[in-house]
Design a binder for these strands. Structure first.
Lengths: 160, 160
DNA sequence: AGCAGAGTTCGATTATTTTTGAACAATTCG
DNA sequence: CGAATTGTTCAAAAATAATCGAACTCTGCT
């Protein structure tokens, strides 16, 4: 039984973030946790998520860990309590930055070497080299594009 | 039995796109189909995907349909054949644009009304209005941010 | 019309991801 | 120290998503 029922504002916020997280293919429980935190003025303790969202301790533990690693949730020491308390990160730069850092950039960083190995195998097939060269060059230019645009995006997000 | 085995260049390309599609949480079969097409100079027929990638007709049918709806694959009439033939779309603007249009923008378009209903429920809870107002305003500014940045991103992608 | 080839549909199967829950630390308090 | 509280871990269950494949439709050909 949830000790403290969710307010309408909280329910709506949770809905909103569940949807937003779904756009990024992130699980519902993450959206619920972040949504509740975002719509709560006070820091929340571990147990609040379990009781008010009716999630298992395991889900909350994993969920908070992932959100913390994304930089979407911050641990906040609360004096007089030995429970962990959490608040939502609300800087768009940090939110977007964390997502990009953990989900997008790792693949992008590996991109050059993947294209390099394409070039290697292409060398063993002299017949199609012209076409293959075109493809490889295009992949390189796509890679450069993303490598340039991501920092710009982050910088813009920092202005919000 | 695959009639024509994949070249090393094709295998590497498929790997690359399977990974890239995975970043966007798109299924492996889509990455395989697009990767094979991207690395093939000639247009490919439906059956080529089935035999060379060892996928079921069902998967290929669904996969090509989704890729076409994303604008990542184009149908190409080949004279003298009544089979459908396909070529890869390689304009970054169209590729990125299609993804954004189908996956991101629909949620963004619904954003204003979701924020509006947040405002509505907030009105019924006068106590926390200050905090809630701050959150709502922030959500609005995030929404404006994305609504502005996406077109810029598309425009930049058009320059590649 | 009847047949063959080409592709689609969709219920069933398989694979993957998410969530649970119970056992297990770790820490604090009496 | 021993009990209680807090949170983590991870194997198993549940939920979800992807893939398959057989039946079907559609089109063109003879």
């Amino acid at each position: 039984m949830p000790s403290k029922p969710l307010t309408p504002f909280q329910r709506e916020s949770i809905d909103l973030f569940v949807g937003a997280f779904a756009v990024l293919s992130l699980p519902r429980s993450l959206g619920e946790i972040y949504g509740l935190l975002y719509s709560s003025e006070e820091p929340l303790a571990f147990d609040d998520f379990v009781t008010r969202l009716d999630l298992s301790k395991g889900s909350v533990s994993e969920g908070l860990r992932l959100l913390r690693s994304l930089g979407a949730v911050n641990l906040l020491p609360v004096e007089g309590s030995r429970k962990d308390h959490f608040i939502a990160e609300t800087s768009l730069r940090k939110l977007a930055g964390g997502y990009l850092r953990d989900r997008i950039e790792p693949y992008l960083r590996g991109g050059e070497s993947r294209i390099e190995s394409l070039r290697k195998v292409s060398a063993t097939d002299p017949e199609l080299n012209d076409f293959q060269q075109k493809r490889i060059n295009q992949l390189l230019s796509w890679h450069r594009f993303f490598a340039r645009v991501l920092p710009v995006f982050k910088a813009l997000a920092g202005k919000i």
